[in-house]
Every structure is written in structure tokens, then in C-alpha cells.
């Protein structure tokens, strides 16, 4: 009984998003390459100070609830004997994530597996949600930038472990002339992470839309002589867009999720100034930290 409730928890947010999208989509013809629909705004003209709720925000929250439901479903009724497939799947996911994090970040960061798994699952499912006809939240730069800023704060947290002064001095290495470039380099990390993810998903969506509209036009001009409703249907759209979707939506989306998680791990693990941090800890009479070999 609980299982059905959890399955409903997985599916209902997505259904609600589809209904919301159908209600808000304006009737239109032709090529439709637009950003996220805006469901609610305090001002008709979107200015910098307008508070608005767009499709990407709603979809990303729906994806979050869905993933939460999936996690609860997979971990419901765990037993020590591991008899059901559900538990095996859950254990496989946990083992893979812990191994990935341990291999890439080292033993000190072993507790980061849930965070990395969460960011990977959120990113992957956000990209895959366009398979049911919804707008991918990752195709909106605001969403990916939010995640990138979160990662940026984590990177900065570990960079400051070596002491603020040491970090400040580090900006002027190897020669003071490089300080502006080092500063830009610090800011470039989140920007490049956000734009990489966003650009990949968005370019896939744009190319899919262009190919779809081109095939529609082609079938109208070639097959328009067919009688009745057959002439109106874009018959040539059957096939090719689906093949493109496998690459642009499925492969690219999952790949970018993996890369985003990978870059998160590498950037955070690479940001720790071990020598400075251990020197500080020695001064405070605390035990030194060793990052066990990856």
C-alpha cells in the first residue's frame, strides 16, 4: 500500500507539471523556440526587479519531489537478506556513488557521496524530463547557475581552510602581475560549469526544434496532396527526431549530469590547501588531516 503511495509521489508531480504546461501554453503555429513559460509574474514586462515563477522552477521542484519519492520507494522495506530487486538496485546505486566519490576525491571526502549523488540525480532527471514534453529546467541558465554557485561556495569554503591570508597571498602567485587573471579564474569556474550544462541542453533543444519544423515544412510541401487529414499530418516527422532525441536528450543529458558531478568533485577536492591547513591545525594543537590515497 505504501508502495503505491510512493509511486504516486514519483509520478504525480510530473503529471501536475504537464497539466500546468497544457493550461498555460498559448496556441501557436510554426517554429517555437522559446524559453521557459512564465506562470506567474508581478509585472507583465519582465524587468530585473520582477518576481516571477517560471516553468523551469516548477519543473525542478517537481523533479526534486519525484526523486525523493524514488529514494523512499527504493529504500522502503529494507531487509538484511536483500531478497527484493528494489533493495539490490538501491545498494548498487549507493555502492557506485561511494566508489566514485572515494576514487575521485579521496577518503577525507567519503561523506560527500550523498551530495554528489543528489546533484547528479537532480541534473540527470531534470534533463530527462523533456522526454515527456516538459521544458528541461537545465535548459534555463538560472537553474544551472544556482547549482554552480552552490558548488562555488563549497570550493571557497575549502579554499579558506588554509587561512584567509594564505588564500590572499596565493592570488599573487607566481608574480603579482597575475592577480587579476587569478581572480577571474576563481570566478570562471562556476560560470563555465553553468554555461557548459546549460549550453549543451539548450543547443540540443534548439536543434531538435529546428529539425522538427523543417521536417514539418518538407512533409507539407511533399505530401500535401494526400487526401483529408493525411495531408495535414507531418508524416516525415516520424523517425528522425526520435533518433536525434536519443543523442540530444538522453545521452547528452546524462553525460552532462555526470560531468557536472565530476567537476564538482574535482574542483572541491582540488581546492583544499592541505599543507596550509595542516600547518594551521598544528598551531591549534589539533590532529593533522590526511587525505587517504584516492
Amino acid at each position: 500500500m505504501v508502495d503505491y503511495g510512493l509511486i504516486a509521489m514519483m509520478l504525480l508531480p510530473i503529471l501536475a507539471c504537464i497539466v500546468l504546461k497544457v493550461l498555460f501554453t498559448p496556441a501557436s503555429e510554426g517554429v517555437n523556440i522559446s524559453g521557459a513559460l512564465v506562470y506567474f509574474a508581478t509585472d507583465e514586462n519582465l524587468t530585473a526587479t520582477t518576481f516571477y515563477i517560471s516553468e523551469s522552477q516548477v519543473n525542478s521542484i517537481a523533479v526534486t519531489i519525484s526523486i525523493f519519492g524514488l529514494c523512499l520507494y527504493l529504500t522502503h522495506g529494507l531487509t538484511a537478506k536483500a531478497v527484493c530487486k528494489r533493495q539490490l538496485a538501491a545498494e548498487w546505486i549507493v555502492e557506485k556513488c561511494e566508489k566514485l566519490v572515494r576514487d575521485n576525491m579521496g577518503g577525507f571526502f567519503a561523506g560527500w557521496a550523498p551530495f554528489v549523488a543528489a546533484i547528479m540525480a537532480l541534473s540527470a532527471f531534470s534533463s530527462l524530463i523533456c522526454l515527456v514534453g516538459l521544458f528541461s529546467p537545465t535548459g534555463d541558465v538560472n537553474i544551472t547557475f544556482g547549482w554552480a554557485i552552490l558548488v562555488f561556495f563549497l570550493i571557497m569554503h575549502y579554499k579558506f581552510r588554509g587561512g584567509l591570508w594564505n588564500y590572499f597571498i596565493g592570488l599573487f602567485k607566481p608574480i603579482p602581475f597575475f592577480a587579476p587573471m587569478n581572480l577571474i579564474g576563481e570566478v570562471a569556474t562556476p560560470v563555465s560549469m553553468a554555461f557548459r550544462h546549460y549550453g549543451n541542453i539548450l543547443s540540443g533543444a534548439v536543434i531538435s526544434a529546428l529539425v522538427g519544423s523543417a521536417l514539418t515544412g518538407l512533409s507539407h510541401s511533399l505530401l500535401g496532396w494526400l487526401p483529408g487529414i493525411l495531408g495535414d499530418m507531418p508524416l516525415l516527422r516520424v523517425g528522425l527526431p526520435a533518433v536525434l532525441s536519443i543523442y540530444f536528450d538522453v545521452f547528452s543529458g546524462v553525460m552532462q549530469a555526470f560531468i557536472f558531478a565530476m567537476l564538482t568533485m574535482l574542483n572541491v577536492a582540488g581546492a583544499v590547501p592541505w599543507d596550509d591547513w595542516n600547518a594551521r591545525r598544528r598551531k591549534q594543537n589539533k590532529p593533522e588531516i590526511q587525505n587517504t590515497a584516492a
Binding site: 563555465s192 554555461f195 557548459r196 543547443s203 553525460m255 552532462q256
Partner: peptide, 19 residues
Amino acid sequence: IMGCAIAETTGLYGLIVAI
């Protein structure tokens, strides 16, 4: 594949500017 996806970034910057 990982390296290719990272190397794509510069092209994607151009794409974003174009879009």
C-alpha cells in the same frame, strides 16, 4: 568522452552568444 565534453565548452560559449 569526459574530455570531449569539457573541450566542447568553448564552442558552447560561441553558441550561447549566437543564441
